[in-house]
Design a binder for these strands. Structure first.
Lengths: 261, 261
DNA sequence: CACGCATACTCGTATAGACGAGTGGGCAAG
DNA sequence: CTTGCCCACTCGTCTATACGAGTATGCGTG
């Protein structure tokens, strides 16, 4: 019944490459060649134990290599599967341009609808709090800030967690301090309040998620996060908002246009 | 002699959280609190086995969790250490602006010198080859391209691996096809050849590295890569170069300026 | 003093076994 | 036929043991 040999080959006992690495290599190659497709189940631990004649821990060790690479994921009671790639969301550099801010819906909703996905925003929290050292520096030495936290989901799967920070003297008592900031989002409100936006600055990092981020974004292991910190400046060169965003890296492509001069 | 208890605490046998996770949690917290500092050695496996009264595999399992998070790394024969963060290289969005292209040295060299690091560029390969599907699409359906591959190192540590692709009708027979493209790099050459640059488009992804990338960039496990694909357009709207760059994510912060309108 | 080796300590790899817990299919009872 | 349970199969966790290989230290020999 086992057609594994046709896909997987044998171990090389003369190789100094560790057995679990050889197994991982063979599985990886089989996946790369499409012998196992996205979402498909790999041979079970028991089958591989039998096929290679090694102990179960050695097979599990191979799986843990592939899991760390983000290639596969295990499901308790079911098996180990080739990790499917989620639909990717493209973030264009003009996504905050004034011309996109006309209609009522947020960019996230509009975009998702267009892509045929079901968008959702939750875990709203809006409150005043002490600014962290970093946020304080970016906003120009403010002590306390208004923090707006929200999580974005596509088809029920969380993809992004964002917090906006605004100086109290700008945001307090305005619609920005309300759970729903109204059409066009807080940038529209800022402009109505006389803070004409001049430009944004975005800082991008990538790293492995903290345990909290793994939980919040329901990340499979082997999936990094993109950490984006955007600062909005008004025409007076004042930083009027800092937005701290953590995204599931496998769900995003960021895109920027740069002038050549 | 062990002062571990003062740092690490005990296990909670009533908890349904797996033992190796509890141990990982305690170590992570100790690191976060600075009880173990950057580059410092954690207790050895044997010490933790003794302290917690568990088997060695359980301790190793904890370490593998932290390793996957990029928090620690093991050195054979020495111990497990808190992973030091390398000096970060900031890439500003105007790094390819014409005004930075005047002097002879490349941006990478200038920048590194300024930061007091020792820069180095190696594994140069310049050759004509068949364009991949993706590159062909980006360059506007070309069949073959000139590929320029190089690796960038800071203080001996590789941080970035980049390949530039150019259409043959532009690059063949010019200095661009030489190992050393001359002062100002290939963008200066392109402009001299009459391809006046208009703008760049950059696409950014983050993911776990492939085994090849792990080797090329000497990546510790738990370090993702930033994958940046830049396309250069001339004033005729023609794509004249595609640069595919893979960076060690822990060594980079990308920074972009976006207009608000 | 300098060199080399023995040794103890480190992590790396691998085996064998045990029990637990989630999943799904088949079978038996109603 | 439907319901519910049992069982087989899956991965998760943990123990105990063994040997290998890289590193550092110190001691003894030359």
């Amino acid at each position: 019944m086992t057609s594994l040999p046709s896909v997987l080959g044998d171990l090389d006992p003369t190789s100094d490459r560790a057995v679990f690495r050889q197994i991982a290599d063979q599985l990886r190659e089989a996946i790369d060649r499409g012998r196992f497709k996205e979402g498909e189940k790999l041979p079970s631990e028991a089958e591989l134990v039998e096929h290679y004649g090694v102990s179960r821990m050695t097979v599990r060790n191979s799986f843990s290599v592939l899991t760390g690479e983000g290639l596969v994921h295990a499901e308790h009671g079911k098996g180990v599967f080739v990790r499917p790639r989620p639909p990717v969301r493209r973030l264009a550099s003009d996504r905050f341009a004034r011309r996109h801010r006309e209609q009522g819906k947020s960019a996230f909703i509009v975009e998702a609808d267009a892509a045929g996905s079901h968008p959702q925003v939750d875990s709203l929290e809006v409150k005043e709090e002490k600014a962290s050292q970093d946020i304080s520096t970016r906003l120009g030495s403010v002590r306390r800030v208004l923090a707006r936290r929200r999580r974005y989901l596509l088809d029920g799967k969380p993809v992004e967690f964002a917090t906006s920070y605004l100086p109290l003297d700008i945001a307090r008592g305005t619609q920005i301090a309300e759970p729903n900031p109204g059409p066009g989002g807080i940038y529209a409100r800022l402009e109505e309040l006389g803070h004409h936006l001049d430009h944004f600055e975005e800082e991008i990092r990538a790293r492995m998620p903290s345990p909290v981020e793994v939980r919040t974004l329901q990340l499979a292991s082997g999936v990094p996060v993109i950490h984006l910190i955007r600062t909005a400046y008004d025409t007076e060169k004042r930083a009027v908002e800092v937005c701290d965003t953590v995204m599931a890296a496998d769900a995003y492509v960021l895109s920027y246009q740069l002038p050549a001069n």
